[in-house]
């Protein structure tokens, strides 16, 4: 199997078939997956589907011009970070300025010089790669190597919207290492760090579709898309057992345990927001702690209502 990263995708949105043919031939030698759209609507649709790294965008299109297409791309969280290069026979300086001000990264005049076209596409791809790398690093927790809280919030919002839109299930597991402060005090912070790292490995070693994040301190959040509560409970229980049975190098007699709270969409009122899913899982986690730790608790609709009315 090849370790080579997949070729970057480039989407050309231009109403001229002549330009698409030209790009096919002229970008032949580049490591690129080239896609084309002949209209603004088709272009916007393909941008969402393909998520290309770079879009070459003509200014003069059919139902809307390139500036409007760019505005649409920038207003959609899914497509807002795609690098857009205007490629146009419109030579007015103000049009170039307008395009760059709207968020395009570059401008290529038609008819284009092949070497310049390739160089500008490569430059946009390099910049895109750096931006993605920085973004990725800003979302990773340095100790555990897991996604951080910022990413957790963004991703849960995204999964929440998808689940609501498509009527899919969604579960959330909150996990907290039991008596972590005592472990730190008794065995030192290096051991505490070792616990965080190992628990992170265990939690992220589950199903490929689950998204494991360090929520803060010794608390972790696992987002389980398209998963109902019964399956989420099984996943949490498997993690709990794995953590409890882990042998700690240099501390053979130490047993580390953790508590889990599980919530899914059925735990919530129909008009609930994403924050209430986190709250429900947190409350279930709190109950697990109150009930003696090292256990998994499930949030239920009734319990939430009882808590709301009982304070």
């Amino acid at each position: 199997m090849s370790d080579e990263a997949p070729s970057p995708r480039l989407l050309a949105i231009d109403d001229s078939e002549l330009i698409h043919r030209l790009l096919q031939v002229r970008l032949q030698g580049e490591r690129l997956e080239l896609h084309g759209a002949l209209s603004a609507q088709e272009g916007l649709q393909k941008a969402r589907e393909l998520m290309p790294e770079v879009i070459l965008l003509d200014i003069e299109l059919d139902t809307m011009d390139g500036f409007e297409v760019l505005a649409h791309l920038k207003s959609d969280p899914k497509t807002q970070d795609i690098a857009v290069i205007f490629i146009s026979a419109v030579s007015d300086t103000m049009d170039r300025v307008r395009g760059l001000d709207l968020g395009a990264v570059d401008f290529i005049a038609k008819p284009f010089e092949v070497a310049e076209l390739k160089a500008r596409v490569r430059s946009a791809l390099r910049m895109q790669h750096l931006v993605k790398m920085l973004e990725h690093r800003a979302q990773i927790d340095s100790l555990s190597g897991l996604w951080n809280r910022r990413y957790f919030d963004q991703r849960l919002q995204q999964e929440w919207s998808e689940a609501r839109r498509h009527g899919r299930s969604l579960s959330l597991i909150m996990c907290d290492v039991d008596r972590f402060k005592r472990l730190n005090d008794q065995f030192g912070h290096p051991f505490g760090d070792q616990v965080i790292e190992r628990v992170a490995q265990i939690l992220s070693g589950g199903r490929g579709s689950d998204i494991t994040c360090r929520y803060g301190g010794e608390e972790f959040g696992v987002i389980l898309p398209s998963t109902a509560a019964d399956r989420a409970l099984e996943v949490a229980e498997r993690h709990r057992v794995a953590i409890e049975s882990h042998t700690w190098s240099g501390h053979d007699d130490v047993i580390v345990t953790s508590s889990f709270g599980v919530a899914d969409l059925t735990s919530l009122p129909t008009d609930a927001g994403m924050e209430q899913l986190v709250q429900a899982a947190d409350m279930a986690l709190y109950r697990a702690k109150q009930s003696g730790r090292n256990r998994v608790e499930l949030a239920t609709h009734q319990r939430l209502e009882a808590t709301d009315s009982g304070g």
């Binding site: 330009i19 030209l22 008819p111």
Partner: peptide
């Protein structure tokens, strides 16, 4: 549109 397309493509 025809003129604009020809302007943008023919040189290429």
């Amino acid at each position: 549109r025809l003129t604009h397309q020809m302007k943008g493509a023919a040189g290429g």
